[in-house]
Design a protein around this nucleic acid. Structure first.
Lengths: 245, 245, 245, 245
DNA sequence: CATGAATGAGCCTTCATTCAT
DNA sequence: TATGAATGAAGGCTCATTCAT
């Protein structure tokens, strides 16, 4: 049993289901993502759908996990970037930006699941899996900040822990990406080049905290470019192509 | 008809309904906020509920407006603070912080209504009312930043408009407040005194942009204290009491 | 108690209620005629409405009775027309036509009450009152037909009773009036001057049965004119004015 | 899927639903025909009901169409009867009578749907389908009358068009059938053998208009018998059996 | 007496889940 | 194993009727 081709087939089908489900979640919200519509979107019936996922919550859970895992992978790859702490933190920022640009549906569905109390609908065990991914991302950032402290490149003001700084960077970035959901709104507010502004704000903030080397002391774009090229060559190309399509 | 005491009673009940509805929205999301549960939460029947609000959409609308108006009021009061631009921006930050501490459920429900397609569920007219409040808040911040430019106290780097800086400050603050929803999560991440960290991050960011007087040149706490005392004496006392209860 | 002016006031109010109710019944159907809307249409409240009519069914009943009584009155006045049986039957026809033209809302609401099972919603006693009016109309016609037989002016074919002939005339007339509800439909079917066609069909039918004097032996229009002038002078003037307004 | 026996089963159930729905419509009116009651009347749940009909409106539409189509079919078959115009008109009358006797519930529900604003509740497209059937019936009658004119067997009096005569015959017949709804009522009015009276009245009317051959010149019963035997052998047998059961 | 807020049964419709075929 | 018909618990909303003021 479990012939390999069969395994692959099941795997393929599962991805197809999640793809359809995610689109429905984005387009019509949680209650617009019905099992009927998912079944209509794939080439199988509702019964088959239930052989892959035990319940609608299970589908939701899989969606959440898929997003979180993908983001965590991006962060983990970025954290292994070769360079000093400040440069590695820059790579993390580049990774987040890439994730946001490359998988906007992931980012958005993730926000939906977190914003409404959708997480409370899934089992504790599954919820923990999701949380672990988030914690891992935070941990990677915190580790880099701690490295900078150890290397005496950063002296945080009294009361500010590495975890707190990670929280601030995270909040600034995700908060901005979240607010970018409505482009019309941005324009009305006179916001120009929001993504670049986020980048600059992070750097300015870190400079303000005296994290060496300051952005005036190193070439930000060179570092980011190297990060893209060395760690995310394939993904960068994808974004580039998509942007110029 | 229109006996004064009766008017008051109706007004009181309307607030009670919104209180219950907001809690349900926070606890169970939009689809968990059912008219049945709201009716069960107040001491009246579903029919009575429908004499106050024509539809579920109407309830959502009232919730959105209540939050936005309250926040807008805080911002408008803060914007009239006497002092230079940097100090007035500090007052805005203090206002947002106060709003968040005093009405955490307002803040959260506001986020929920803006996320997902909840805004699309209410009529265009009502939606506009809500948007106008948000735009007004942003406008107030942008105005202060522009004042600083006019007074040659701030020179924004090329490409960054006042609106963009307002967007960044807004994103940092609201993003952080949003992430504070789960205190356990914060603790696990080693975040200490998150609200103070937000304050400091904003000041550091503005310092980094060279907005004079720098936070090293003026007493931040003195300014914030004066803002609280002069503009929000009653609200400050409320928060203080609540914190020490 | 029961001061005369008060009696009149109550009477007036009752008529007002029925007027509003009948219009609602016609415009929005039985379930569109809500007690709320009736109360909104009169200058009194729902509570007062319930002091005049014990229930919605009671209102319906009053409407049905009002129509039936009005029609019965028309028939009774026509039956007293001076002339031979054929002429009196002509007067009955003229009365029905006048009723239809003068009170189209009565005719239509009557049909609505009969067509849907609305009569079953009212108490047996009330229903009987309504039925009695209908029976009385039929009886008047039957009596005239019997008079014609007695006077040897009419010899009905075997098996056809006076009641049966009355039923036929009644069916032809009311059926036609009913089908005239949708004028667009009539036009599409190429129906020209439907009311006149009904008159002619009735006369042709009675001629065909040999009811003397045949329509070729008397001046139909002269008879009808006299009926209008002698029995319904006021109503005729009303219709005339309405038609030429 | 689409197993033949399954198809048949679904078809059978759909008819069952309509049967129950029609009875409810007749007994309790449109608003008494609730989806709950229909579901209770069939042996399936409300959910299943909604898999056959998308809405209550859809059920009403199906009912209307079923009636109209059935009647139209009867009329079309009758119109092809071999004989002169007068004989074909007799066949139409026989067809209407048969339809009324064979499907009294169809006849009555049809009347209910046309009365009140029930037709406005169904979509324009569906309404058109219903109207087309009615127009077709009228057209068939009008065509026969025009044929009689062409053949110089009928000279309509000035101002009466073929469409108008069709309208009169239609009104007489349907009006009478409608009034026959309450048999007790008929008896009380001394109506004897109402259906035969309708037949006779139609013939007398046509005779009175001079439509040749007059009923005295041909054997009405022979023509009607031949129509039944040649066009509606099966239906006639059914009525016969039902009457003698 | 007049008022109109309060009630709650009932309506139409949706959808996650099950299970016979 | 795959299917999709069947289920029934909700959900949003209406409205006839009552009754405290």
């Amino acid at each position: 049993m479990a012939a390999p081709w069969k395994e692959r087939e099941l795997q393929r089908r599962e991805e197809e289901i999640l793809r359809v489900a995610r689109q429905l979640l984005l387009d019509h919200g949680y209650f617009g993502m019905t099992m009927d519509r998912i079944a209509a979107g794939i080439e199988y019936s509702k019964g088959t759908l239930y052989q892959h996922f035990a319940s609608k919550e299970d589908v939701l859970c899989a969606l959440a996990l898929e997003s979180e895992v993908k983001r965590k992978e991006f962060f983990e790859r970025a954290a292994q970037f070769s360079g000093n702490a400040r440069e590695r933190m820059t790579a993390i920022g580049a990774a987040y930006e890439l994730y946001f640009r490359l998988h906007p549906t992931y980012f958005r569905s993730e926000q939906m699941i977190h914003s409404q109390e959708l997480l409370t609908k899934i089992s504790q065990e599954r919820r923990d899996q999701v949380m672990v991914c988030g914690a891992r991302c935070h941990e990677l950032m915190t580790g880099i900040i701690a490295d900078a402290q150890t290397a005496r490149q950063l002296h945080l003001p009294g009361g500010m822990t590495p975890g707190t700084l990670a929280f601030i960077l995270w909040s600034l970035t995700s908060g901005a990406y979240l607010n970018m959901a409505d482009p019309g709104h941005l324009e009305q507010m006179g916001v120009v080049n929001a993504i670049e502004a986020v980048r600059m704000a992070c750097q300015t903030l870190l400079d303000g905290l005296g994290w060496r080397p300051l952005s005036s002391e190193h070439d930000y774009f060179a570092v980011a470019s190297r990060a893209y090229a060395e760690i995310f060559p394939k993904e960068t190309a994808e974004v580039f192509l998509a942007a110029n399509r």
